[in-house]
Design a protein around this nucleic acid. Structure first.
Lengths: 349, 349
DNA sequence: CTGAAAGCGCTTACAG
DNA sequence: CTGAAAGCGCTTACAG
């Protein structure tokens, strides 16, 4: 239709704000007001303008708006999480929230061990004049990065298992609750000799999950034997090492809880290498519920965090001020994990 | 340093092309020429301008350039691949190539089954005025999408296992060669009763991999029993179904090659459910070499495609014309998979 | 080899 | 409630 209208410009050429203004017989400023939902437009003027916008198939040019606003219509996802599934699911969730907003998602992996980390992020945010940034762990826990974003006046939302920031800049996941569920599950299966494989100290989640797990065990009167306490690295290989270390003990544990799935599967690998049969000789529970969890044998019982929902919630929180929304309701939300029971953990012999 | 210079503007405010022009005592047009590497600048003028750029820490505003160029400095990755690992690795590879180019990566998942697919992609590309688009399978094989991008005059590179396009718009992976390696491996282990689990017809890779596999078997005088030929869906569940179907046969195969890893692991699950012991009772070989492959038990022998390299190569191809490079060398490259031998396939009994 | 003018498509003061 | 002018930070013709 727009193509047939001689006033709408050559076919194939996009309509601009000027075309709309001419058609609607108003100034471009008024069109701009309509686009930006200003309340200072008479109802019938607005309707007329909207009709022309519709007829011409006009969409404002994001680049031009960005230049005038001195802020782009881009949201950044800065991540260092090593799990591809985590990253893709989170991306998907953020995109769910961005849909229809006119904002696009720019992805930016980073490495906290690199000396260029801060310069790199500064360049990225400053150059693109990002509208905001979302960060999952562990980069969300890096105080240097936060200080930098504050200095650049770049809005952000961080996702973490500890409330490290004001509620409007923070999505908190209750990892401790999930770990407690794992503890209760193993205890109710009759296990008393239970091993724990932690993550690295760099991740706050390791401390939070450990505490939730140990507190729940303590409530049931099950202490953790210090020799059953192993510090891993959130990697498969460290899980293998943990499995060998714990299973080589004179009185090995009958069950092991690992603070992520990669390590759980590593523990299973070690058990196999030692000739054990699973789950008969050892119960294992993981954390994350990666797709892999449902595919390994025996299928892994694991604590699931709703990553995609978390991405969506974080993005909604980031967008709330831009939309002039009251974030109070959003700020109450706390993300709760659930235990997915499969068959890698069974009754103690 | 720039902050101390009174002429460089207020601290915290970014230098613009005007600041550089004033400092270097040239017109902004000349600065623009330097930025864009025009050859029509005297060497010492260029040096003077570059010195000022350096001193002021000037970086051109991407939004402003985008507006003037009528093209943004954004590259899109449009994908529908269901494997998170595939997507993240490809992203990483594309970013490797983009590093330092000033281009950023915008991710855009899509669904080929949605009726809105084309409108959705059109809106995305048109609104953002993308510099180019990279597509992995299966969206790379969708002729409607290609027609749309051509119509919009948007450069693209597609990745696929068949040369569907001119070399400069195409990165071809030799999946057939990888499948042939799998066939040779199983044959040399003494297997003669070999099952094949294909992918869906929607993916060209399924046909290509099947052909490579069957041709290699034929060369060794091993025909495929039609009852050993199963059509899966590239999903874990379809692998489970395939495993049950093939293993329920009166004379079941001693080895199964699946056209991706998810199905391979599904076959293993089915074998377990039927009480078989692996790898003793069944050899399995997959394709993709997902991280999972090295973590399941027994560790899965699989054909690996260098996904990250592929992302990098595709992006380099996309960038070549913008950089005024001759893409001839780039066009020769064909991506070759390698068989990663682990212990899920052993000598036939 | 270099520059002054006009423009990309929008928005922000400033008026009325 | 609405508009004419100036500007965001670059580039494209057009001159010289």
């Amino acid at each position: 239709m727009a193509q047939d209208d001689p006033r709408s410009g050559k076919p194939g050429k996009r309509a601009t704000i000027n075309d709309v203004a001419r058609e609607a017989k108003v100034s471009k400023k008024t069109v701009s007001r309509v686009i930006n939902q200003s309340p200072f437009v008479k109802a019938d003027t607005r309707e007329r303008v909207n009709a022309v916008i519709e007829a011409l198939g006009f969409t404002p040019d994001p680049q031009a708006r960005a230049l005038a606003f001195r802020r782009s219509l881009l949201v950044g996802l800065i991540y260092d999480n090593p799990s591809p599934t985590y990253v893709v699911n989170m991306q998907q969730g953020v995109l769910d929230a961005l849909k229809g907003s006119g904002l696009e998602l720019v992805v930016h992996p980073c490495n906290r061990d690199m000396p260029t980390l801060l310069d790199d992020i500064r360049g990225f945010v400053e150059r693109q004049r990002l509208s905001g940034v979302i960060m999952p762990p562990s980069v969300s826990e890096d105080q240097r990065v936060i200080a930098l974003l504050r200095e650049m006046d770049c809005p952000y939302v961080r996702i973490a298992s500890v409330a490290l920031d004001e509620p409007e800049a923070m999505l908190v996941t209750n990892d401790g609750m999930g770990a407690a569920e794992a503890a209760n599950h193993l205890a109710s299966l009759g296990h008393r000799r239970i091993g724990l494989v932690r993550g690295p100290d760099l991740f706050r989640s390791s401390a939070v999950r450990s505490k939730g797990f140990l507190d729940a065990l303590a409530e049931r009167g099950i202490p953790l034997d210090p020799s059953y306490d192993f510090k891993g690295a959130y990697t498969f290989e460290s899980g293998v090492a943990a499995g060998h270390a714990l299973l080589a003990l004179e009185t090995p544990p009958t069950a092991i809880f690992t603070l992520n799935d990669d390590m759980a599967i590593g523990v299973m690998q070690a058990a196999r290498e030692r000739g054990l049969e699973l789950p008969r000789d050892l119960s294992v529970v993981g954390f994350d519920d990666l797709p892999m969890a449902a595919r390994v044998w025996p299928n892994l019982t694991s604590v699931r965090l709703p990553i995609r929902d978390m991405g969506r919630m974080a993005a909604e929180k980031l967008l709330a001020p831009m939309r002039g929304l009251d974030p109070t309701g959003l700020n109450q939300a706390e993300v709760r994990p659930t235990l997915i029971v499969r068959n890698s953990a069974i009754k103690a012999a």
